[in-house]
Amino acid sequence: MSEPQIKFGILGCADIARKLSRAITLAPNATIHAIGSRSLEKATKYAASNNFPETAKIYGSYDAVLDDPDVDAVYIPLPTSLHIKWAVLAAQKKKHILLEKPVALNVGEFDKIVEACELNGVQMMDSTMWMHNPRTGKMKEFILDPHKFGELRSIHAVFTFAADPDFLENDIRVKPDLDALGALGDAGWYCVRAILWANDFQLPKSVTALPGTIFNKAGVIISCGAALLWENGKTATFHCSFLANLTMSVTASGTKGSLHINDFVIPFEENKGSFTTSTESGFTELVTGWAPLPSQHTVMTDVPQEVLMVTEFSRLVKSVKNEGLAVEKKWPTLSRMTQFVLDAVKTSVDKGGETVNLD
């Protein structure tokens, strides 16, 4: 007997929705039930070009998707400025929500989304795919090992990609009325999440934007970085940019070991992911090399990380919808922490690099 499937509605025809549409199709417990766009013609073409099932409903508005009684959950890849309107409305319509990142323009907006979800008993999860990769769990095992890694002391994260001229001029991520957080909200979200993840989601004491923030002519951040500090002297830094070659790296250093990953957001290959670790590293006698050498670990996965995300989200939705269980609060909590730190970085940027304390 086939597994009951959660019926998804998709709001909008964003490029990232192509990837998630594939993931929903591949997930064993999910199916695409509907898509809505501001244009019926656009939604029809999008569904056809992305191999939507013939049974998928095509709507000429977002409201029609939310009003469809058979839609269990919605995926919202709309511009960040529209998240609060459509996520709140989706919750009020009793639709569970898979929300693209950044989840909002600021934590105040996100709190209103969470409040709507809680009032209406719907599950919310942000679309940070790498969190669901089995490699992520294996890396955390190493970081938590007191004998191999010790106590975490520093983290450095980088996510950059060299956007082409058309992106820098026309993409929604460079428009102040659509995605006002720019590179900080897009690439920076992943860096901040990685830093918090490595530090077991303990919030830093303070955040300071690094010098060298670059804005486009509309005043949107297209390159920036920040330093984070914890009470015990633990530190982290990150850099995010639309202006440098594709880089997705995280380095975590502990008192006994270190971990490095070169492709943390999107693995080089979707069916496997690697990372390197080293413990009690030192130099050879003549300081001509390392001893012992770092070791590489490869974790295989039967399905891509985005499919695992959709599968887990759908499992949670099913537990609420069919089994009467409470929503899982872990995911909105992690989303809020990430947004909270992003807000602090943005405030520091706006104040010319002034340190912002996170009370």
Rank of each mutant, 00 (worst) to 15 (best):
112 K>C: 08
66 L>T: 00
108 G>Q: 10
75 Y>N: 02
43 A>Q: 12
18 R>L: 15
31 T>Q: 03
114 V>K: 07
25 T>S: 14
99 L>I: 10
92 Q>G: 13
118 E>C: 13
25 T>C: 10
121 G>M: 13
24 I>W: 10
109 E>I: 06
50 N>F: 08
85 K>H: 09
54 E>C: 01
56 A>M: 13
111 D>S: 14
56 A>Q: 14
13 C>G: 05
91 A>G: 06
95 K>M: 05
32 I>Y: 01
78 L>T: 05
70 D>M: 13
21 S>V: 00
60 G>F: 07
31 T>L: 00
112 K>Q: 14
112 K>N: 08
97 I>N: 13
89 L>H: 14
83 H>N: 04
75 Y>F: 09
13 C>R: 10
115 E>K: 09
83 H>E: 02
55 T>H: 09
45 K>R: 14
27 A>Y: 15
17 A>T: 11
22 R>N: 15
64 A>P: 03
84 I>E: 15
29 N>K: 10
83 H>I: 01
88 V>N: 03
73 A>E: 02
123 Q>R: 13
77 P>V: 01
108 G>L: 09
78 L>A: 03
68 D>F: 10
42 K>C: 04
42 K>T: 08
45 K>I: 15
40 L>W: 07
85 K>I: 03
14 A>F: 04
12 G>R: 04
40 L>D: 04
104 A>T: 03
33 H>M: 11
23 A>M: 06
83 H>V: 04
47 A>E: 12
23 A>C: 05
116 A>M: 06
69 P>G: 02
88 V>G: 01
68 D>H: 11
114 V>T: 04
106 N>K: 09
114 V>F: 08
76 I>S: 01
58 I>G: 11
61 S>T: 03
118 E>L: 14
39 S>D: 05
47 A>I: 12
121 G>I: 15
80 T>H: 04
80 T>G: 04
123 Q>H: 14
71 V>E: 08
90 A>Q: 05
48 A>C: 00
102 P>R: 05
120 N>M: 06
93 K>Y: 00
58 I>Q: 11
64 A>H: 07
44 T>M: 12
89 L>F: 14
66 L>R: 01
89 L>N: 13
48 A>S: 03
117 C>T: 13
22 R>M: 14
16 I>K: 06
62 Y>H: 01
51 N>K: 14
93 K>E: 00
59 Y>H: 05
99 L>Q: 04
29 N>F: 10
74 V>Y: 02
30 A>G: 08
106 N>M: 09
121 G>N: 15
78 L>E: 03
123 Q>V: 12
101 K>F: 04
51 N>Y: 14
30 A>L: 09
31 T>D: 01
119 L>G: 10
111 D>H: 14
23 A>I: 02
86 W>Q: 02
93 K>L: 00
36 G>Y: 05
82 L>Y: 06
107 V>P: 07
16 I>L: 10
25 T>P: 04
116 A>Q: 09
113 I>K: 06
51 N>A: 14
86 W>G: 02
31 T>C: 01
50 N>K: 11
103 V>C: 11
99 L>W: 01
84 I>A: 15
53 P>C: 03
31 T>E: 03
